[in-house]
Each structure stands twice: as structure tokens, then as C-alpha cells.
Design a protein around this nucleic acid. Structure first.
Lengths: 204, 204
DNA sequence: TAATTACGTTACGTTGCGTTTCATAATGAG
DNA sequence: CTCATTATGAAACGCAACGTAACGTAATTA
């Protein structure tokens, strides 16, 4: 259920799309992305570097932003790091902390900030955008959701909170500091944030 | 202490900058911003509409983004709404709720989303960006900070939390939903968010 | 073999950028 | 008053990238 990419290849008439050209475009886009940043991933630069034609790129993606998102997804540069699950302590709370700290560290870089910005600025109506959003933010949410659920089941947390709100509570402030940049986004902040989420501001 | 705009006008030699041209640019930029959105605020469009020259615009602002930010600030389109303070209940917690709900309502629009996106995407090294950020997010934070402080003083909240963390806890998730758009950003969310912040996820 | 579709190349028109040049206008200094 | 200084609007520039169209060619199905 994880890969229903092509239910069936209906094999139309005519010359098939070149998978080689597609892969070359993704590779070139990813290379430019890493070397020169998001703004330099232009259709013309990718076409030139990949040795393919511009029209071919437009046959596969709507514009350079979508191509950049596709390149990031294709190269798995957004994966939440399975290390989080390896490090998973018996205590789901500690595991949650570790996972959020790791996620923060991955995003608190110029490249990570660009990825977050791409999510924020992307055209919401595009299917590719939705996939990208799911990879960038959905993954971390699902991991956190599982840990919170386990924490509730083992009696470490109350059970009467709204799960989506809780996830926003944990992730929102990180995203906020990352993009607004009003205050530093470091591990100390991340840990204090989690602590505050758990304890709340009121008297117990 | 609120307007130390020009400590002194050092009156250099030569023709002075045309305040009329400056105002025309800001007005035209704001009009285009409202009518056609942020992306259409180009230096050429503003110059044409304002009846001024492109070089004049570049003499005042570094690029179209900064001009757009300046236009928004000049027209006070970002003010936090003093209504929040008027509505201020005796109970600072209720006042805080009202203020955050009002802020959310203002931002949960296409225009508000654009403003948030401008903050996120702006060049952090620019002074104008910092001013803009202060107007967009600083204002609401200061209001919330005052209310939280009052709530602590009147014994409604614990006093051992980190104020900046608390402010991020309240604002971050709103900003997050606004820009990521994974789930709706409405008043119900806003109120549940505040409730969760106050209570925390742990047992009391 | 014919129809169909994608390929890479090349070229096109468009938009917007940021800069330069120009003659002209407005100010302060001498 | 005259001069140096600086800003103005107008026009034009070269640059980059956009997205599209026109080719002739290659690959595939019917």
C-alpha cells in the first residue's frame, strides 16, 4: 500500500517518455539545488545541465518549483531519518523529544529553511505540492502521533487532548521560529518547547 | 518615544527627494497589492501607475519586495487592531483568547497569508524586513506578553514558564496552519489551541 | 508501413530585473 | 546670481528566465 505509483501502464501509442531524460532532469535539479540553492533551479539551467530540452521538462513538470520539489522527493532528502525510530527509547516521551530535536536540527539550516519555505509558498492546488507537503511535514507528524498515542496508552499522558492540536503544538513553534527567525532555533529551545507543551502554563 | 523618525534632517546639498513621488509609489504599490496581489507589485508596474520613474523607486527601496513591505506598513494594514484592547476583559486569560482569535481572523485570509509569507521569505538582513517583522508579529506578541504577565501577577498562571516559549506556543501553531495549510485555521482551532497551551498534555 | 508521440535543438515573444544616460528641475554654498 | 550638487521622469539597455512553437528525428503501437 506504499507504492501504487502506476496502477497499470496503459501503453499508449507513440514514443514513450524517456525515463532517462526524467532521471537526468531530477539529478541535475538536485545538484543545482545543493550547489547553488533553490533560486538557481531554473528550467533552462536544469535542461542545460541534464543535456535535455526545455520542452521535455515542461512535459514532465509544470514549472521549476515543481521540478525542485520532485527532485527533493526523488532523492529522499526529506526523510525524517529512521534513526529516530532506532534511538527510540522505551519511554515514548523521551523518544518524542529525540525525534523532535533531530527534526529541528535537520531543518535549522539554510537548506532546511528553504524546504520549509517551499512548502509554505507552494501552490496548494497541485498534487505534487500535496505529496511534497506530506513528505516534509506529514512524516514527522505521523511519527510524533504514534509516540503520543503510545504515551497515552501507557498512561504517561492524559487522553483527553485533541491529537491534531497536540501535533500542531509541538511542530508549530519550530516551524514558526524557523521561518520568522525572531529568535534562535536550537536544541535548547526545542526541549523547553516540549516541556512547556507537556506541563502547560496553568497550575497543575 | 514613538516617532524618532528623523533625529535631524541634515539637509545635504542638491535637489531634495520628492516626498510626493515617494507617497505616490507607496500608494500605487498598495493599490496593486490589494487589487492584484503581491506578485504583481513589480517596480515597473508601480512606477507606471504612480507616474514616476523606475530609478526614483530604486533610490528609495532596494527592490519590489521591500517596496511592498513599506507600502503595507505605511498604510497600517497590519495593525493588530486596538479593538483587542478595548474588548479587554478583566480576566487576562479571556482577553488573551479574544486577542488571538482576532489575530487569527485577520490572518486567515489570502491577503493575510501573503503577509505572513512575505515575513517568512524576506531577506533577514534588511532593516526594513526587521521593521516589517516587528509590525506583523512583534505587535501581537507584545500584546500577548502583557496579558500573560498580568495573568501571572494575578495568580491565574504559573510563573515558572519561559515567556518567549509561551508566546511561541501560542503563535507558532497559528502561523504553522496558516502557511502549511494542512488543516483549517478557524476560531475553533484557535480556542482549542489556547486551551491546550494552558492545560498541557500531561496529567495535572 | 502508417500513425502517433516524445525527443533535442533552436528560436521566438514576453516580462521583469537593475542600470545607465539624458536633459531638466530644485536646492545650498560661494 | 552662479555654480556645484542631487533628484526627477523618460527612455533605452543588456540580462535572465519564462513558457511556447516549429522543426526534423527517434521510438513505439497498430
Amino acid at each position: 500500500m506504499s507504492k501504487e505509483d502506476s496502477p497499470e501502464p496503459p501503453r499508449k501509442a507513440g514514443r514513450p517518455r524517456s525515463e532517462k531524460a526524467r532521471a537526468a532532469a531530477l539529478a541535475a535539479a538536485y545538484a543545482i539545488l545543493k550547489e547553488k540553492g533553490f533560486a538557481r533551479v531554473t528550467v533552462e539551467a536544469v535542461a542545460s545541465r541534464a543535456g535535455i530540452g526545455k520542452p521535455t521538462i515542461y512535459r514532465h513538470w509544470a514549472n521549476a518549483r515543481e521540478l525542485a520539489m520532485a527532485a527533493l522527493m526523488a532523492h529522499g532528502a526529506i526523510q525524517p531519518g529512521k534513526a529516530a525510530q532506532d534511538t527510540a527509547d522505551d519511554d515514548p516521551i523521551i523518544a518524542l523529544e529525540d525525534q523532535l530535536v533531530a527534526m529541528t536540527a535537520r531543518f535549522a539550516t539554510p537548506a532546511g529553511r528553504q524546504v520549509a519555505l517551499m512548502v509554505a509558498a507552494a501552490d496548494s492546488s497541485s498534487e505534487l505540492t500535496k505529496s511534497f507537503r506530506n513528505q516534509v511535514i506529514g512524516q514527522s507528524r505521523e511519527t510524533a502521533r504514534a509516540l503520543l498515542t503510545r504515551a497515552v496508552e501507557t498512561g504517561r499522558l492524559r487522553a483527553d487532548f485533541d491529537m491534531e492540536i497536540a501535533l500542531d503544538l509541538l511542530h508549530g513553534p519550530i516551524f514558526y521560529r524557523l521561518l520568522v527567525g525572531h529568535l534562535p532555533l536550537d536544541e535548547g529551545f526545542c526541549r523547553k518547547l516540549i516541556s512547556a507543551c507537556l506541563r502547560g502554563l496553568e497550575f497543575g
